[in-house]
Design a protein around this nucleic acid. Sequence first.
RNA 1: GGGCGAUUAGCUCAGUUGGUUAGAGCGCAGCGUUGACAUCGCUGAGGUCGUAGGUUCAAAUCCUACAUCGCCCACCA
Length: 891
Amino acid sequence: MAKQMKDMPSAYDASSVEAPLYQMWMDKGYFRPRIVPGRDPFSIIMPPPNVTGELHLGHALTSTIEDLLIRWHRMLGDPTLWVPGVDHAGIATQNVVEREIAKEGIDRHDLGREKFEERVWQWVGKVRSRIGIQHMRLGVSCDWDREVFTLDEGPQKAVRTTFKRLYDDGLIYRGERITNWCPRCQTALSDLEVDHVPTQGKLWHFKYPLLDNDGNPTDEYIRVATTRPETIVGDTAVAVNPADDRWQALIDRAALLPIVERPIPIIADDAVEMEFGTGAVKVTPGHDPNDFDIGGRHNLPIVVAMDAEAKMNENAGPYNGVDRFEARKLIVADFDRLGLLEKIEDHTSSIGHCSRCDTIVEPIVSMQWFVKTAALATPAIDAVKDGRIQFVPKRFERDFMHWMENIHDWCISRQLWWGHRIPVWYCGNGHMFSAIEDPAACAECGSATLEQESDVLDTWFSSGLWPHSTLGWPEDSEDLRYWYPTSVLETGYDIIFFWVARMIMLGLYNMGDVPFRHVYLHGLIRDEKGQKMTKSRGNVVDPLEIIEKYGTDAVRFTLATGGTPGNDFRLFDEKLEQGRNFANKIWNASRYFVQSAGGRRISLPDPAAIASLNARASWPLEDRWIVSRTLAVSRDVNRLLFEFQVNEAARLLYDFFWSEYADWYVEMAKVRLKSGDTSPLPVLAYALAASLRLLHPIMPFVTEAIWQHLRDHIEGLEEALIIAAFPLGEGEPDPEAERQANLLMDVVRAIRNIRAERGVDPGRFVEAYIASADTSLAQATPLIETLARARPLHLIPHPSSAPTTGVATAVLTGAQVILPLANLIDLTAERDKLSKQLTEAQTEITRLESKLSNEEFRSKAPAPVIAKEQEKLTAAQSRAQALQTRLTELG
RNA sequence: GGGCGAUUAGCUCAGUUGGUUAGAGCGCAGCGUUGACAUCGCUGAGGUCGUAGGUUCAAAUCCUACAUCGCCCACCA
């Protein structure tokens, strides 16, 4: 074996190749942007993974697609920037660390805020480096010098600046509102952080005694129905629909709330559905969002009857200190005892759960901070409407629009310890103000007695600034001016509202321009059964594990081809095996070239010749064919990537490289090479190098590893594939060569087919006649001889000059193959096969004839379509005739 | 209560401006140790593209219903 083969083992070994290559790319500084005047910049800000733990497959998918786009643009010669980052992930990380310290038997209150924050920082340090390593294993070519954490000084300043601007513009306010409260996390949540789960429960019907005009109890009752009896103690009214005849007389009277014995008015409000329950609703403004609104309209008092842990408080009378669900039982029992429980029905309703800890959330009125979103939403809607931002797939624009048009104010305060503390200070004299830098004195009265708001911001507040805060905003940085707006945002469709919407709103607000041009949304990766991967199911796949098993390129290829944008897809071993096998195929096809080159250094064909049909005219058929195909594939790959059809681009390359380059072209090239003719080497080198360039964005390691070997064997290759030129496919295609090559391959396949069916010994050469009017086959004789093991080979213009007995025949479009196989021929089988084909041909003829004789088709279909159908008809007719002739001969 | 997606070969999925005989991988059947690769090669079987209508010269692709599965949004107590 040649010396050069020594360091290319016969199987691609990803584990020994990847780390050194990544190091080489880093050392050479290839990940840093190169500014090229006159070319449009291409930039991506990485969605920052949460510091809650390891990366999962969603991150791997994000990284793969972003890296692929980045590498493609880098090779196109565009100035290319990819900014990595990490997210502090407020509530999620706090929960994770709380669980950590729970193992030591302590909770965060035992530690206090400062000590607890220290523990979280320790955790962050550990997890961040792990995330970095995982990203490197995935091959991400981001600019590590620019890595940002959401709690870094820059983003901190961006957060405070944004807050103050919104505050000063009157777009942030503080108020007592009803919000979703998690009694476990003990914080308010935004609507998006609540998961609604349909739950089988009860609907209790209670009777409230009516009061007379003097406020004395009567024998009459008003009946109300509720799913949450524990909130009764917070009732401040009963409401009926103003149009409901049943209750007209009761409107404006009063009822006595049992147990707490509070007189409450009976009011009329349109929000009450007459058909539901009894048609009368208990109104609890302190514990129900609807009731809060009703209370607002009728100026009702608000009674909050629970504390932060959702235990009943002093407003709950006898239930003070009791857990909310215990209180529910007690209240039902008490009503029953008082004879005020009328009936209990089964009822299914949606119960909100904390998306972080799954505790049932409680709507509670409390003091919180909100962003007024209406004014921010309008420019965001416009940006998508007029196409300044485009979603891929486009259908998600509707979801975005619908959410934006019905947007509610955003509760941004969290009663947590981990996050950006709200930049608002209260002074001893009751003043409140926002500032960017920590103030020494009250902005209004100069008092030095200051206390900062203890709440932190929703973690998505800082994420919402990400595209500009990572580039240096609020400073007027060079990066910001050059790279903003960014080109593409790539993320999962599950965080369109959480994140994408907020970035668009805040990007437009702070920068006056959109944060990105395209939003590429990938689907969720599921397990082999289609189930979501979750820790509780235990079906989570660690990207590092499959990388170690199959190699990074296999994982990337699988993720890139696995599904279409916006659609979920299932991952399992067989898919990864396909990726691994492909990497091995690329490796070995390249290895064959290195072996064939021997010690020579091969010069690539003149680029001008590649581009010119005329210059290629004298080349062997197979060379003209593979060049034409390489040009076509290059063009298609660029077009597909430009359209974000990543999966189609990857699939196209897979098919091209395996089925056309390796299975056919290399095998054809061998025919000359084995006879000592080295003339295929330049074209072999050209098609191989072009393939590696095209494949590099998807499979960076195996292609770069091969490239570094090839540099010893091919003249003029760039020093590294990562910065090599991406093929654009500029050059004249050669349809005639493609047609001839297809005929050649059809002939070879036909001979192989007959051999396999007749059980011809694979090693044996057989005599063959090929009848064709196409003289181009003559130049391919050696190819057919070798690839089909057919010798002697007779090229004849018409089948009539071939033997008619003891032969097997295959009728193709444009040629007929006749193999004299004497004793191997089974006449019956031969007849059956041919008459089956004849029937098929006749069916097709009938179909095409009726189509072509249809006046409407002839007048309305475009000319090329008609011509094509006519061609098909002619081909089918000649096939039928040949089959008929042969059948007649068989008798 | 709205909205979206999926439904194509035994399995997992492609099929983007409607126009070859609807493709791939795996699986299956047969053959193969020809020095790139058994993580391979060759040959083959396998689909009335969920159902019913419609538009069109032409539908897996566009429209309308329906079915099944999945998801998102929504304050029916």
